[in-house]
Amino acid sequence: MSLNKPDREAIIKAEEKAKRDNEIKFSQSGGSVYVNGTKYTDAHNAINKINKGN
C-alpha cells in the first residue's frame, strides 16, 4: 500500500491541526511518510501517530 495525493493532503492537514512539532517527511516517490523517523505507508497509522505525538 502506498500513499496517494488525498492521503498526503490529509496527513498535512492533521499535522497543522495537531499543532505539534512532529517531523514530517514524505519519501521522494510520495508513497510513504516518515513521522518522527518512523515510516508509514498508510495515512490512518500516520495520522494516529501525529495525533498522539511522541
Rank of each mutant, 00 (worst) to 15 (best):
M1Q: 08
M1N: 07
S2E: 15
L3R: 13
L3Q: 13
L3Y: 12
N4H: 12
P6Y: 13
D7W: 07
D7K: 07
D7M: 08
R8P: 03
E9N: 14
I11N: 08
I11T: 06
I11A: 08
I11D: 06
I12C: 08
I12F: 02
I12R: 11
K13Y: 07
A14L: 05
E15K: 11
E16S: 11
E16D: 10
E16A: 15
K17L: 11
K17G: 00
A18I: 05
A18H: 07
R20P: 00
R20M: 09
N22G: 00
E23G: 02
I24V: 15
I24M: 07
I24E: 00
K25Y: 01
F26L: 03
F26R: 10
S27G: 15
S27H: 11
Q28P: 04
S29A: 12
S29L: 03
G30S: 09
G30W: 13
G30Q: 12
G30M: 08
G31D: 13
V33W: 09
V33L: 10
V33S: 06
Y34V: 05
Y34T: 10
Y34D: 11
V35A: 02
N36Q: 01
G37C: 05
G37E: 10
G37H: 04
G37F: 01
K39W: 00
Y40D: 05
T41E: 15
T41F: 05
A43G: 04
A43P: 00
H44I: 09
H44N: 06
N45P: 04
I47T: 12
I47E: 13
I47M: 12
I47S: 12
K49A: 15
K49S: 13
K49F: 04
I50F: 02
N51F: 01
N51C: 04
N51G: 00
K52I: 00
K52H: 05
G53P: 00
N54H: 00
N54S: 01
